[in-house]
Simulated assay, not measured.
Amino acid sequence: MIPATLYGHLLGDAYRRLPQRVAMLHARDGRRRYVGEVEVRRGASPLSRLCAWATRLPPAGAGPIHVDIDADRHGERWIRHVAGHAMPSRLRAHAGRLRERLGLVTFDFDLHVDAGQLRWSVAAVHVFGLPLPRGWFEGVEAIESERDGRYRFDVRATLPFAGLLVHYTGWLDVD
């Protein structure tokens, strides 16, 4: 059964191919909290630091993470808590894509289920409502998967002229 949630709506029949823990995380409405571990690497260039600030990316380091998700029929609000830093975002459907507002930047993602993974790839990016060249964001990708009975995430963002903005990987307990 495909849930009547944001991801169920966007993925349609592909939702059935999600790994169990990924499907569980995206099948629930209401408020919930997931806890786990994360490792964050950050870029060091001045432009990288400015971009990371504009999108409220987490600081470098390794340790606990907790993610608060509040989902309803209009979308989801995520707040990722890493090392005392909150990284909020708002997700909703827009023109058949997943739209995420992260700080000053709005991303539109195409979602693909492939080889037991949910992949997010950038389709469009706007800052203050102004479109940016999509080609600048070919180094931005998120992957959700399951391994050892845990929900796993791997998020990487690199930009031309800035280099690495962030690469964070880890797991959450999803039961």
Rank of each mutant, 00 (worst) to 15 (best):
I2N: 10
G8A: 03
G8L: 05
H9L: 12
H9P: 00
H9I: 13
G12A: 01
D13W: 01
Y15N: 01
R16D: 12
R16P: 02
R16W: 01
R17I: 01
R17A: 15
P19W: 06
R21M: 06
M24T: 15
L25D: 05
H26R: 01
A27K: 02
R28C: 11
G30T: 04
G30F: 08
R31G: 13
R31F: 09
V35G: 09
G36I: 03
G36A: 08
E37T: 12
E37A: 14
V38Q: 12
V40L: 06
A44K: 14
A44P: 00
P46D: 09
S48Q: 09
S48D: 11
C51I: 14
W53N: 13
W53D: 14
A54D: 11
A54E: 11
A54H: 10
T55V: 15
T55W: 10
G61D: 09
A62C: 10
G63N: 06
H66F: 15
H66L: 11
H66T: 13
D68A: 11
I69P: 04
G75M: 07
E76Y: 08
I79L: 11
I79N: 08
V82W: 05
G84Y: 04
G84H: 04
M87F: 08
P88W: 01
R90L: 14
R90P: 04
L91N: 10
H94A: 14
G96T: 04
R97P: 00
L98S: 00
L98V: 05
E100S: 07
E100I: 05
R101S: 10
R101Y: 04
L102P: 03
G103M: 02
L104H: 09
L104C: 11
F107K: 02
D108A: 14
F109L: 07
D110H: 12
D110V: 15
L111M: 04
L111R: 05
H112G: 10
V113L: 02
D114S: 12
A115I: 00
R119W: 10
V122G: 05
A124T: 01
V127Q: 02
V127Y: 09
F128I: 07
F128V: 11
F128E: 08
G129H: 08
L130S: 02
L132I: 08
P133R: 00
R134P: 02
F137W: 05
V140G: 04
E141C: 12
A142Q: 10
I143L: 10
D148V: 01
G149S: 03
Y151D: 12
Y151S: 09
F153M: 03
F153K: 05
L159F: 15
P160A: 04
A162S: 06
G163K: 00
L165T: 08
L165R: 09
W171P: 08
D173E: 13
V174I: 14
